[in-house]
């Protein structure tokens, strides 16, 4: 077995190049505070990306991720501080709703893209109902965790490593993870082996829901309050993060560590373009160009792999 999985080599390389470029453009960023400022907003994105990765792993795609994370943010900011029991119950309800969605999609053989697109409006509406105008506060303990200043290594880096580690163990090393990946790889084989695919897909969605709930909570911990539109961007960011991190849309081929690296890369790409003083008219295009560049590089690597 090779030391570094080739699937991971490219995401790591892209991140390293961007880090060097950002430090070169803005030497001030090369400090404890600087690194924290660069990466702390990547923590919720990394959690959402892992959630999206689990959905993609079972051959689905989740277009409601941003709206769902926003809803969680609203619950965390509006209800959790004043009424922890009710807040926790609602968050649990969110996870169960996700599991139910997974079961529905499998049992009725519905296209996930349609179901989640529809649900995005449900989550969005629920968010506005819970928090009609932006506000609320972050629970004190949550902000304390997200803004903690541990010695030597910034919190953003510790959190990223932790997320990558937990997701890796859960998805790549546990029997549970193997079954979920098998569902994406060959659902028929899983069902012939006597496993209930409905139950497995519900489990996959529940785990994704857990990570998405953590993403919303982490986001509120950083922003210190909520907004019903706070995380809409996460839908596309999380999908891009999974693909950037070496995941594929089909076949249960994903990489949790890669997904976290993908999320960090996307966040850093934004800072890089901002330090370059690129006109905003070009920024979306430039972000897309970075994405295409990495994907093109991946195609080349894949072809080279096939030849050897």
């Amino acid at each position: 077995m090779r030391l570094i999985n080739p699937r991971l080599a490219l995401p790591i390389l892209s991140l390293a190049i961007l880090i060097v470029a950002v430090f070169w453009l803005q030497p001030r960023a090369m400090s404890y505070v600087g690194i924290n400022l660069l990466f702390n907003l990547a923590v919720p994105i990394a959690l959402a990306t892992v959630a999206q990765m689990i959905i993609i792993m079972v051959n689905d795609i989740d277009l409601s991720m941003g709206a769902f994370v926003s809803l969680v943010a609203c619950i965390t900011a509006a209800i959790l501080p004043g009424n922890p029991a009710l807040g926790a119950l609602m968050l649990l309800g969110c996870v169960l709703a996700y599991a139910a969605l997974g079961a529905l999609i499998e049992a009725r053989q519905l296209p996930a893209i349609v179901v989640t697109l529809g649900m995005s409006f449900v989550w969005g509406g629920a968010g506005v109902l819970i928090l009609p105008s932006p506000g609320g506060t972050s629970p004190v303990w949550l902000t304390a965790i997200m803004k903690a200043k541990p010695p030597l290594v910034p919190m953003a880096i510790i959190a990223s490593l932790l997320i990558a580690g937990v997701a890796h163990l859960l998805i790549m090393r546990s029997a549970f993870g193997v079954r979920l990946r098998a569902l994406g790889g060959n659902a028929r084989a899983v069902s012939r082996a006597g496993r209930s695919t409905v139950r497995l897909r519900a489990m996959a969605y529940a785990v994704a829901g857990c990570f998405a709930v953590l993403a919303g909570m982490a986001l509120v911990g950083l922003t210190t309050s909520g907004d019903a539109n706070i995380a809409l961007r996460y839908t596309l960011l999380s999908i891009a993060g999974v693909i950037l991190g070496g995941g594929e849309f089909t076949g249960g081929r994903v990489s949790p560590i890669g997904a976290v690296i993908g999320a960090l890369t996307l966040t850093l790409a934004g800072s890089f373009l901002s330090f370059l003083r690129l006109s905003p008219d070009w920024q979306i295009g430039a972000q897309g160009a970075i994405l295409i560049l990495v994907l093109a590089a991946r195609l080349l690597v894949r072809q080279a792999e096939k030849r050897t």
């Binding site: 960023a29 907003l41 919720p44 922003t223 961007r233 901002s274 905003p280």
Partner: peptide, 20 residues
Amino acid sequence: TTAENQATEQAAQIQNMILQ
């Protein structure tokens, strides 16, 4: 100006300005 009208992106932009 942020490329997309999103709070999370603007928060990152402000954090970049601190560094600048």
